[in-house]
Amino acid sequence: MQIDHRELNEVRSAQGKEKVQAPGLSIGVRQLIKRFGERQVLHGLDLDIAAGEFIAIVGRSGCGKSTLLRLLAGLDTASSGGILLDGQPAEVLKDDVRMMFQDARLLPWRTVIQNIAIGLDGSQREIRERALEVLGQVGLADRADEWPSRLSGGQRQRVALARALIHRPRLLLLDEPLGALDALTRIEMQRLIESIWKQHRFTALLVTHDVSEAVALGDRIVLVEDGRITLDEAVALARPREHGEALFAQRESRVLKRLMTVEAINNRNQIRGRISEIVVDSVLSEVRILTASGLVTSTVLTRSLSEQPLEIGAEVLATFKSNEVVLAT
């Protein structure tokens, strides 16, 4: 018994040391290009991430989010451009990167604990000890010896999270890991991921289709469009962020609006010009823009005008949408 305890303490202190040595990885992505045959998916993507940052990535389906993550994880190679992790080529630190997929990808023929132990070396006992510890962190210690097929979707994702955590990753890539979960389980998982991230201080990249999830977790929200980053917005809200709070809701709707605005900007439906006149009214205001092809009038909410003031003479981009026109300075 005595020996057991001492060994356990040694393991613990070793882990403690590792934690100090191994905070998050910093990431530098430069002019990243990825082609699949004829189709180019990433068009010279640039992205810098500080060690320990939590980045939420959003963007339309097919814009290249998973491709970016797979390149970061070393599961695929870039056509050109480079990825630096802590200033070194990505291959060097490949073992410090772990990925969590949308589907849990547990081996059905291995029990929960065997799944977590995958790719680990060491004595059976030590591995089991560590696996039980991470299982405890995700709240599933009592399910260690069950088959994955007996778990619910959310529990499977928690096992997948534990499997990633046991490797003490310095960069954790999360590719829509919560997409298939119901709203309540998802919020619960978000809190879990956040608390584990706070504890371990790894760098995290989370791909999500849920803006509120991005606002809840991200230090920054990055929008990927057509293989480029078109928006990079810091979220300066204190953690933990409560979904019901006014500040949170305000932030969420602002980000959503920005996303929609930026998404609307493409060459087909925009026109450059200069503001010539602003007519302010109680609810709706009108902004007149002088463009090369004449005067354009845009109706905007007076409230958004006060939030994002415009000046006469400013260069703007008028964007046409089927149901509304928005302005971007």
């Binding site: 772990r98 997929f101 990808r105």
Partner: peptide, 10 residues
């Protein structure tokens, strides 16, 4: 997908 997972876990 499982093979890819296995690879990514070394």
């Amino acid at each position: 997908a499982l093979i890819e997972m296995g690879r990514s876990y070394g």
